[in-house]
Design a protein around this nucleic acid. Structure first.
Lengths: 202, 202
DNA sequence: TATTGTTATACTCTATAACTATA
DNA sequence: TATAGTTATAGAGTATAACAATA
């Protein structure tokens, strides 16, 4: 029968603890049509991160559909609610959104009367961002929606699992930011760099 | 440099273990210009998953740029290498890619001589997918690239952290798939369903 | 009638260049 | 000269509808 690693029998780290690269092939088309062997993808942090992220976002989008809000829109409301008076470039940088893409995103929230672009004191180029009363009220409701979503998402891994996950992700993100450009969210017309001085020919 | 970054003693909520929703505001524009408070986003599994996934993919893309391969292309090569003879619909379903979007993806690999669409025995509608000799050789190299990438990504969390992370993500993904449609990757002209019979009424 | 691969199309997200008005 | 916001545009990724060939 199945001599290779079959996805159905849930065993992952059998005897090796580091990325392995075995390539034993079985003809899936003529042998086991039901299950597709993901191979190293099942051991790939990036692949599983993407899958998990898509699953979580699917729940988020469904949860927030009633409020007609996308994840990015929610994140902007949270940031502005927590940090009233920030400039657009500060909010967009905090969210890793290029300021050029941030404009229509903010527009959608301003047109709905949730956010206001106010004149910033001292610098007439920039806008100070604030929630409107309507936006603030909505955000309070959204916090409840989010808590429901968050609880639902983490039902399978429990409170401990969630704390572990948040910690692990935080460490990975910190490492990623360290090796990234100083201002990864926007360097379009700031510096005429072609290659991202990251690792390159290290 | 316009304004000086004043680093005062920042403290956030530190000793709570469940989704919290406090909204104590401080005027970030006039008090602490350097650091933006992410609020609940820092406790949001979805937000951190997305950030981590972006960081990991950035490394992957950079690593695989030499081979001119995107993550999705790599995943297709891995699946076909592991499961020779699969139909397009089987590979695309395994990767959560709609079969309609899978066509140009496969085209790119076939045009480069890495994958071959062969006539499937018994069903003249479908194509049996196989790696070419060139594709197989390349995949062996790619496995090494991937192992480098994977090791680099997990340097900050260690072998134990990686195993924990893979386990946690696997559990979340399994839960997500359970509540999703049977064939989430493609139901365009298969069933005329408008609402995704998931949770809905909640 | 249902399935497989395909084309066409649209919408979101992301990325780059260039403009304006300020500084 | 540099920065903040903006516009325009292009590219990925993802979504639905419809068609031809085959089952």
């Amino acid at each position: 029968m199945a001599e290779a690693v079959r996805k159905s029998s849930r065993k992952r780290g059998e005897d090796s603890q580091h990325p392995k690269t075995d390539q034993s092939k079985t003809d899936a088309a003529t042998e086991d049509k039901g299950a597709v062997d993901l191979g190293i993808l099942g051991e790939s942090v990036g692949f599983l991160l993407k899958r998990a992220q898509m699953a979580v976002f699917a729940d988020f989008i469904e949860t927030f559909a009633a409020a007609d809000l996308r994840p990015a829109q929610f994140s902007v409301l949270v940031i502005i609610g927590r940090n009233p008076g920030l400039k657009q470039s500060q909010v967009s940088a905090a969210l890793n959104i290029k300021r050029t893409n941030f404009v229509p995103l903010l527009d959608s929230l301003e047109e709905r009367g949730l956010v206001a672009r106010k004149l910033a004191a001292g610098d007439r180029r920039s806008h100070a961002l604030h929630l409107t009363a309507k936006g603030s009220t909505l955000l309070t409701e959204l916090h409840r929606l989010w808590a429901d979503h968050e609880r639902r998402i983490c039902e399978q891994i429990g409170t401990d699992g969630r704390e572990q996950l948040l910690s692990l992700l935080g460490r990975m993100i910190a490492a990623g930011n360290a090796s990234a450009s100083p201002d990864d969210a926007d360097e379009a017309d700031a510096a005429p760099a072609k290659g991202r001085g990251k690792r390159k020919s290290g």
